[in-house]
Design a protein around this nucleic acid. Structure first.
Length: 461
DNA sequence: TCTGGGGTCCTAGGACCC
DNA sequence: TCTGGGGTCCTAGGACCC
């Protein structure tokens, strides 16, 4: 099939069934079996292996409703193990980074890539080579969608998953090709069109991606603002944004949980909220950022009686831009005292910060700030260093609780294969894709012991 | 007995200013 | 005290994403 070389080609590379695949890579006994990864509290299905998908297990379904199905088909259940997935993600992205001059990491399992100019003549071949390389070096199968805009590339990626033999799809953007393929994509499957937009569109007889592309532009703009207009432009082959190779600075940070049981006691809530605030502090310092506002969210979850239902969110301005954990905890507790209502069973809580600035150039306060804050910063940073060396929560603030019975159930957790020494798999159990592949060491450092042989064929794309 | 966690962007509307 | 035009900044909340 001849392809038209084009100066503007974007690929989206997306890991297939990412969490489930990560579990299978490190536990060979899971390969070929239906594997389901569960959300926090082992609550609902957030990932399925191909085998589990084939059983008709729906995404997002509450796990307890599916227990008999799980038993009948001997489905393997796993609690989500984000330390493992994040580490595997980093490895995949590293392989991608070596294959393109421009890469935007879009999510834990997905990235946008600019196709290198030498590959523009035959992007499909390049895509296949890339896919092979990722599979051999990480054990993760990916799908590659290639087109002239991100939105079209996302559609190409769907086609790669569902209509292609080799996991790669190049979607040309001539009128005829687009008419054929966009007519087969339901409008709610288009990136950027959610349930609300879809409802309105269906009411107006717009059911497919092609219908949406062909709808009057001013009507789209009037009903769905610039967001909808941009999506339409992209479906017409006109890019509306470039890639963002350097991740832009974060604008907000949050930490929170759904509790395994409703929490009524103030003291328990106080512990949990302190722990979330402490986690936000850690993240701020990791990102070298300071926050100007802090918010607290409390919710009882859905309740039969609306008078027993709470879903509150309150923000306060911090006295200074800060990343000092004690100050964040104080602020969160201040909000909690104002918001807490006796007699309610709280199911969720979260601490969030926004108005973030880089630490080295944040707005200076008019008056010198409390000298204790500098001290708190030092203590927080010292605790970070200890925890980085010896593992998360080696030292922590006493107020964040000892027993922590508000914490999630994670009864089916896989080992931290790649990030905890004691959980390293033995060489004999290691996954060896195609018999010859090896994992690449991420930095020539700690996993050299795990993957001593980093040789293998030279790869050229 | 339930149904995760963490983000971004856009718009409307109020407060405030000249 | 009233009038109007024109602007900025901030925040809440909705919608969407993975």
């Amino acid at each position: 099939m001849p392809s038209t070389p084009s100066g503007n080609r974007v690929a989206v590379v997306d890991c297939n069934n990412f969490y489930a695949t990560c579990e299978q890579v490190f536990d060979p006994s899971l390969r070929g079996r239906p594997v389901v990864v569960l959300s926090n509290n082992d609550g609902c299905v957030i990932a399925r292996s191909a085998e589990a998908r084939a059983l008709g297990i729906p995404m997002g379904a509450p796990a307890h409703l599916l227990m008999s199905l799980f038993r009948r088909h001997d489905v393997v259940l796993r609690s989500s193990n984000f330390a493992l997935y994040a580490d595997m993600s980093r490895r995949v992205m590293q392989v991608l980074r070596e294959a393109t001059p421009e890469l935007e990491v879009y999510s834990i399992d997905e990235a946008f890539l600019r196709i290198p100019s030498f590959a523009l003549d035959d992007p499909a071949r390049w895509g296949k080579a890339l896919r092979t390389r990722v599979l051999r070096w990480t054990g993760i199968a990916v799908s590659v969608g290639i087109a002239s805009t991100r939105t079209l590339a996302k559609i190409a990626n769907r086609l790669a998953k569902h209509a292609s033999e080799d996991g790669v799809w190049v979607l040309e953007d001539d009128e005829e090709t687009l008419r054929v393929w966009l007519s087969r994509i339901r409008v709610e499957e288009v990136w950027g069109i959610g349930p609300r937009m879809a409802r309105i569109l269906h009411r107006h007889g717009i059911h497919t991606a092609w219908d949406f592309r062909e709808a009057p532009a001013d009507w789209i703009r009037a009903h769905f603002s610039v967001t909808g207009a941009r999506t339409q432009m992209e479906l017409r082959g006109r890019p509306t944004t470039g890639l963002l190779p350097d991740p832009p600075p974060r604008k907000s940070l949050r930490s929170g949980r759904t509790f395994p049981h409703p929490v009524t006691r103030f003291s328990t809530l106080r512990e949990a909220v302190a722990a979330f605030a402490a986690r936000v502090g850690e993240r701020l310092r990791e990102e070298s950022a300071v926050a100007g506002r802090l918010g607290l969210y409390l919710s009882t979850g859905p309740h039969r009686d609306p008078s027993h239902r709470i879903s509150d969110m309150v923000w306060i301005r911090l006295p200074v831009y800060t990343d000092a954990t004690p100050l964040l905890i104080q602020a969160a507790h201040h909000l909690l005292e104002a918001m807490y209502r006796k007699g309610f069973g709280y199911k969720k809580a979260a601490v969030m910060t926004d108005d973030l600035y880089p630490r080295d150039r944040f707005p200076q306060p008019l008056f010198p700030s409390d000298p204790r804050i500098a001290r708190w910063r030092q203590i927080s940073a010292a605790m970070d260093r200890i925890n980085q060396t010896w593992g998360r929560d080696t030292v922590r603030w006493a107020i964040t609780g000892i027993h922590r019975n508000w914490q999630s159930r994670r009864q089916r957790l896989s080992p931290a294969y790649t990030t905890r020494w004691s959980d390293l798999p033995r060489a004999s159990t290691l996954f060896r894709p195609r018999g010859r592949g090896r994992f690449r060491p991420r930095n020539g450092g700690e996993d050299r012991a795990l993957f001593p042989d980093q040789g293998g064929a030279e790869w050229r794309l």
